[in-house]
């Protein structure tokens, strides 16, 4: 059985000929589309390393079947920067040293982008910590991550304010 699945990945429309319905979004990205920025840490929704945005919402790509995503818009870490210009969240992660080994980082960053978009954290570090708790960092960069999210949120809000003005 072969399925034809249409996806928009990082703004590019793709048609995926799926020869096996078992393929998860994570394995599609990594093993079939050479988009290896998204990482596999547990493959069971228990670590957050595979976080991507689907239709603008952060989800665990390891627990999402490609077969059920026909028509979806997928954004991965590879699609975040604007050319050489880093996304504010990316820049803030570097500045706050919000990572060490870097393996959980794409998931952390996509999760942070989703979090900011959701708009439930305000500027409260405790809310940021809670809402970033679906992304495990074994190196222990949490304090930098929290700082980075708060800073990026501020930068993005300022930018938005300026654009609106």
């Amino acid at each position: 059985m072969s399925l034809s699945i249409s996806l928009t990945i990082n703004g590019q429309p793709r048609t995926i000929a799926l020869d096996d319905p078992r393929v998860t979004l994570l394995d599609l990205l990594r093993e079939r589309l050479d988009l290896t920025g998204t990482k596999k840490g547990c493959d069971r929704g228990q670590c957050g390393a595979c976080t991507v945005l689907v239709d603008g919402r952060r989800i665990n790509s390891c627990l999402s079947l490609v077969a059920s995503l026909d028509g979806a818009d997928v954004q991965t870490i590879e699609g975040l920067a604007d050319g050489d210009a880093l996304h504010p969240v990316q820049a803030a992660f570097i500045e706050a040293d919000g990572f060490q080994c870097g393996y959980c980082t794409p998931g952390q960053i996509m999760s942070a982008v989703g979090l900011i978009k959701e708009g439930h954290a305000s500027g409260d570090p405790e809310r940021v910590r809670e809402l970033m708790s679906g992304n495990i960092c074994r190196c222990g960069a949490y304090q930098g991550i929290t700082e980075a999210v708060l800073e990026a949120q501020k930068v993005m809000a300022d930018k938005k304010g300026r654009n609106a003005a």
Partner: peptide, 27 residues
């Protein structure tokens, strides 16, 4: 100084072992 590998790591371009995919690769 901030990390030299910072940009690679925040853009997903830092290459970890399992990111490699030589032609003809088996699993």
């Amino acid at each position: 100084l901030t990390r030299r590998d910072g940009v690679l790591k925040v853009t997903g371009r830092a290459t970890y072992a399992a990111d490699n995919h030589p032609d003809g690769m088996l699993y």
